[in-house]
Structure formats: C-alpha cells, structure tokens
C-alpha cells in the first residue's frame, strides 16, 4: 500500500529519540485514520509539520547530556552554514561592482564616483558596508574554523576520521595559496599588443593559468570539505561545554554579519527602486552584478540572515539545557 509506505518515509523525518518514544503509536494511529477513510495527504502533511516542530522545539526530548549537546552542535551548524553558502554570492556582487565603476578622472578622487545620483551614492556606500561585512565574515569563518579544529583535536573521544577531516580544509586552503602565489610568480609581466591581441613576451602564460585553476580547484575542495566537516561534527563530534559556549558567540557574530549584509543589500535596492526602474539605474551595483537575479540575491541574503539567527537562538536554548545536564 503506497500510503503506508509514505507514512514510514515521513516518520523517518522525526528525531530518533521521538521515533523510539512515539513512532510505533503514531504509525498505528495514522493507519487507523487511513483505514477510517481520512485523506492520506492531510495525514502525511500533518506528520511532516509535526516532524519539523519536533526537531525545532525538542519538546519531550529525554534529558540526556549527549542528546542536548548534539542539538547544540546541529544548531551551531545551522547558524554557520548560511554565511559559508552566501560568501560566493557576495564575492560575485563585489566583482560586478568593480567592473561597473568608471575609472578615476584627473581631478576626482580615485575612490568612488562623484557625479552620480543620491540613489547611486546610497548604493555605493551600501557596497562599502557590504565589503567590510564580507571581510569580517570571512575572518569570522577562519576564526571559527580554527577554534573548531582545535576543539575537535583536544577532545579525546573524537575518532581518527573526524580528526583527519578537520585538517582537510586547512591543507586544501594552504595548497591553494601556494599554487596561487606560484601562478603569480610565473605569470607574464610584459605583453605585446598585436592587432588588438595581447601576446606575452615573458613568463609562462599557460602554466600560470593552470596553477590558478589548480588553486581554484583546491579552494573548492577545501570549501566542500568544510561543509562535510561541519556535518560530521554535528552528527558524531564531541565538544566540551566551553567549546560549545564559544560556538554560540561564533553564531551570534555570523548572524550579525549576515544581517549587516542583508540590510546593505536592501538599502541599495530600495534606493534604486525610489529612483526608478532598478534594472536601468545608473551605477546599479545590484542589478549589474546579478542582472535580473538581483531580487533572488537580496532574498537569499535576507533568508540566510534569518536561518542563521534561528540557528543561533536554537543553539543558545539547547546550550542552556546542555549546561544543566553537564556531568560535574
């Protein structure tokens, strides 16, 4: 029976402690309701909503230290992941802005356009705020990673696999830096422009491109390894109470940075909206960077800030219970 199989799938969405306590009963009651002629999709939808609520609230969860420490770790991952995922979006934002601004003219300041509308100014300063927030955000990620890696290595109960995994992002990032510097060293310095085509006079053009490509590949590997590491830590890692408490402040910083970025993006969009059509606005950072995807970009930032804040609040709540249950 398809509905019965669907019930089993939906019940897997519930936390394991919940399934152990109520799983069999809920399955029996749901089957009784289906046999009674109730709408299968309503029963399934109600179970899905119930599963989300059970995961979020943790109501009825047994008061075990390991369980609540796990909830704290998972909430911290929820708080952190949005910044990791939106960082590439923000970098694309920055790139578009750099391409868009006109070169400085004699007599003007080298930074920032002078003869632009008030909306353009708002966008320009929003970008500056976003750039600063991005630097703070990346520094926060590096700080958080260094703390987490140290915490995992310090805790003797963590397995060898996790300890190795924790090192991988740093190793990949170090290799990326080495390749990037090597690519810069061997890159051509002088070019001859012939019929509009630049031909290198020295260096190793193909090699430098290859090294830059390798650096990008290692950076991507490090990024993916970082995400996998976070999931591994949330599921099977052991962290001391002090490290969990430090993680809470990391979550607070992460969500704060995301809110600053989201606010800056919203300000720039509102400024352009008030000026007229955002798509055709002069020096439109948002629209020129993301094109017709600008609204998706802004919504992504706001969504990321909301998710990160939710994770931080959940982590703080779970940490409070974890601290009460901590063995002396």
């Amino acid at each position: 029976m398809r509905a019965t199989r669907l019930l089993d799938v939906v019940l897997r969405l519930y936390p394991s402690w919940w399934r152990a306590q109520y799983g069999e009963e809920v399955r029996t009651v749901s089957r009784d309701l289906l046999a009674d002629g109730r709408s299968a999709w309503r029963v399934v939808l109600n179970l899905v909503i119930g599963a989300v609520r059970a995961r979020v609230s943790g109501a009825g969860a047994p008061r075990h230290y390991a369980l609540w420490a796990g909830r704290t770790r998972t909430s911290l991952v929820v708080a952190t992941l949005p910044l990791m995922l939106v960082a590439p979006v923000i970098v694309s934002f920055r790139q578009g802005q750099q391409d868009e601004f006109p070169p400085a003219r004699p007599g003007t300041l080298p930074f920032g356009p002078l003869n632009i509308s008030s909306a353009g100014h708002a966008v320009y300063y929003s970008f500056a705020v976003m750039a600063i927030a991005l630097v703070v955000g990346i520094s926060t990620l590096v700080w958080g990673y260094a703390n987490l890696a140290g915490a995992v290595r310090r805790e003797g109960r963590n397995g060898r696999r996790l300890r190795r995994m924790v090192r991988l992002p740093a190793v990949a990032a170090a290799l990326a830096v080495v390749l990037c510097v090597s690519g810069f060293v061997v890159a051509p310095r002088d070019f001859l422009i012939h019929h509009g085509v630049a031909q290198p006079l020295n260096g190793h053009y193909a090699l430098s491109r290859g090294l830059y490509g390798g650096a990008a590949a290692f950076l991507s590997v490090g990024f993916l390894a970082g995400i996998i590491m976070l999931f591994m830590v949330s599921r099977q890692g052991h962290l001391s109470l002090a490290d969990l408490a430090a993680g809470k402040w990391f979550g607070v910083t992460t969500s704060g940075v995301l809110w600053v970025m989201a606010s800056a993006a919203v300000v720039s969009v509102v400024a352009l909206w008030r000026q007229g059509s955002p798509v055709h606005a002069t020096y439109s950072i948002v629209t020129t960077s993301w094109g017709s995807w600008w609204i998706a970009g802004v919504l992504t930032l706001v969504g990321a800030a909301l998710v990160s804040t939710f994770g931080t609040v959940q982590a703080a709540r779970a940490l409070r219970v974890t601290a009460q249950l901590a063995p002396c």
Binding site: W18, Q21, Y22, E25, V29, N46, L47, I49, G50, S57
Partner: peptide, 26 residues
Amino acid sequence: GYSLIQDIEAMSGVTLGPGTLYGVLA
C-alpha cells in the same frame, strides 16, 4: 491516540492530525 482524535472530534468538531496530537502529548 486514535480514541483521543475521535473524542475531540465529537466534542468540539476539531480534527487533530497525528503529528499535532503527539506533539501536544509530548
């Protein structure tokens, strides 16, 4: 669970789904 759902339905006309009922019970 099942008799609770039926009793509540008869008493108030409200149909509680299994997810809602066991969330409340927990």
